[in-house]
Simulated scan of single mutants.
Amino acid sequence: MTITITPAASERMRQFLAGTPEAAGVRFGVKRTGCSGFGYVVDLADALGSDDQLVNVDGVPLIVDAKSLALVDGTVIDFQRQGLNASFVFHNPNATGECGCGESFTVG
């Protein structure tokens, strides 16, 4: 499994982890949502689950559950600021389409 985190995303994740030192890492995965099928999940994880895979990406402990592995393999996670808005942005080679608002994606 390969996931890339840009320097901006890495810095943001490190800030989250520094504020919650008891966190096991950053959870990255997908859930069924939106009009296209899947939405991304980025959150702090309290602990590793039995089906989780822990990957150290540029010093950031990234936790991915088994159901999400194939859907996020190859994804580049970025963090962008536009005016007052800031968010993680995902470049996923597995996504074959997105909804109009960009909140969810489909896979082929």
Rank of each mutant, 00 (worst) to 15 (best):
G59P: 07
V64S: 03
T33K: 14
N92W: 03
G97V: 09
A66R: 15
R81L: 10
D51E: 14
A8N: 11
R14A: 14
P61H: 08
V26C: 03
G74D: 08
E11Y: 09
T75F: 02
I77H: 02
F88Y: 14
S36Y: 11
G59C: 13
G34F: 02
A18N: 14
T2I: 13
P61G: 07
F38K: 01
A70T: 12
V55C: 09
E98W: 08
G25R: 02
F90A: 06
G108H: 06
V55P: 04
G34D: 03
G97W: 07
V107E: 08
G37S: 01
V57Q: 00
I3A: 08
E22Y: 12
T4H: 12
R12K: 15
S50L: 10
E98I: 07
D65F: 02
P7A: 09
D65A: 05
D46A: 15
L48I: 07
L84W: 11
H91K: 08
V26W: 00
G25L: 06
V60Y: 01
V76I: 13
A9D: 03
E22N: 11
G74Q: 07
F79H: 15
C35S: 15
P61Q: 08
T96V: 10
T106S: 15
D58N: 13
L62F: 04
L69K: 09
A66Y: 13
L62P: 00
A9Y: 00
V60F: 03
D73P: 04
V26T: 03
C35I: 10
V41L: 08
I77Q: 01
C99V: 04
K67Y: 13
A18P: 08
